[in-house]
Design a protein around this nucleic acid. Structure first.
Lengths: 228, 228
DNA sequence: CGCTAATTTGATCAGACTCAAGTGAAGTGG
DNA sequence: CCACTTCACTTGAGTCTGATCAAATTAGCG
């Protein structure tokens, strides 16, 4: 009896591998959480540093967070931008292998790791979120490997724009929450190359740039083609 | 009572996030599994293709497996090499987002996904393996992002050699199970650049190359330095 | 309105790629 | 057992994409 119950419990928990991860909907409302502590950050504040003890797991409520790694000489790789609803800071070991910073003003919830188990009991949705969050991170990271390893600058920008658009808007107009430097460090390019690629896409009539942080995708088909 | 038991069960299962993932030991013995079906493959055979229905999760018993993604024009990115003991083929959705092929002769176990839950009941170790496997994939992918996005050719090779050494041997001599082409597609380089980098490291006295597939790390300190 | 930071643009440079040829080792068949 | 084929790897020469260095514009912001 007990065994059956335990098996039941473990099965869905251990093998979310078997469940279909629903896509994150743009504009999904991320209501105030029932557990966890809410924290606010202004632009470019550090949420945690590489090597910090990983006492919490986080979820973005509003704004954008970047997680990045540094090389000893300062070269930086932003592994991901986390938007509202995204989970970040999950670690296997006891310290963070990334640094996390706010890209603009943002609000996040922090869940103390050692409380997660009991929290999960009270908030089933949270439990699901954590597992799904990890899977989603993996999928994103793996797609990003292909981009970094094998795509040209123009293709990287095209893929990036389509990704941000899908995650933040329903139409063809999007606001970039991050700087050219952040984009460059995410795509393995320099800011100059990022800027030139934007200009090139604009000249080809594929996008419009009303301002640096505002992009309109006027020719999605062409972007998809560059997405290879 | 029941609730407590269930919480207990889910906690360790849902949040392996909290457990410390033990490092894979070189030469760890990967005994015949108690469940799952064993399959053998010769060099360069396809285990599953990108887009295939993800009916199984796999574990390498011996040999090496590569998982890769292709761009429409044939450019390839190998996201990882899987050695004995490694899990691969875990998917969130119902189809594989990678292609998996044998690098040399290899033996693997296949676990039918829809049976995993019940198998986990009989084989607790397996359940743990799956979760840890996913975490390890994530860590590897994230480290690889930094390599692909920000490291030079020489640094990529250095990192690669140290990684393979750590995973396959206790001393400084290692056999590369994969071709230059595979290495190139893993590191985001061409075979010529891979070859030239090896030669350069050899000329600098950092490695020895008794043969193309055999490397001796004569100066680990220098490699670590390149690892940045 | 002036100051500062972010972005764009230009000119030059370099690391990695492409194309091409050469070397070497492994295997095949006579 | 040796000549021949094949395939993997190495090396060389030239090119090109994206980086670097530098300057000009533009956008925010107090």
């Amino acid at each position: 009896m007990h065994t059956a119950l335990l098996t039941q419990a473990t099965s869905s928990a251990l093998f979310p591998l078997a469940l279909n991860v629903p896509p994150l909907r743009p504009h999904a409302d991320h209501a105030a959480p029932t557990v966890g502590s809410v924290r606010s950050f202004a632009k470019d504040e550090e949420i945690f540093a590489e090597g910090d003890r990983a006492a919490f797991v986080y979820k973005v409520l509003s704004g954008v967070v970047r997680t990045s790694k540094l090389l000893s000489d300062g070269r930086r790789q932003i592994d991901a931008f986390h938007l509202a609803g995204d989970i970040f800071g999950i670690e296997a070991g006891d310290e963070h292998r990334f640094c996390a910073e706010s890209v603009g003003d943002c609000v996040i919830v922090a869940y103390r790791r050692c409380h997660l188990a009991s929290l999960a009991g009270k908030d089933a949705q949270l439990a699901q979120d954590m597992t799904v969050g990890m899977m989603r991170s993996l999928v994103r990271a793996q797609n990003h490997l292909l981009l970094l390893g094998r795509k040209s600058a123009l293709e990287k920008i095209a893929t990036f724009l389509l990704d941000i658009a899908e995650r933040t808007t329903d139409d063809d107009a999007l606001d970039l929450p991050m700087s050219r430097t952040d984009i460059a460090d995410h795509l393995g390019l320099t800011i100059e190359t990022v800027s030139r690629s934007f200009t090139q896409l604009e000249r080809q009539g594929i996008i419009e740039l009303p301002s640096a942080r505002h992009v309109v995708l006027t020719n999605r088909a062409a972007l998809e083609r560059l997405n290879a």
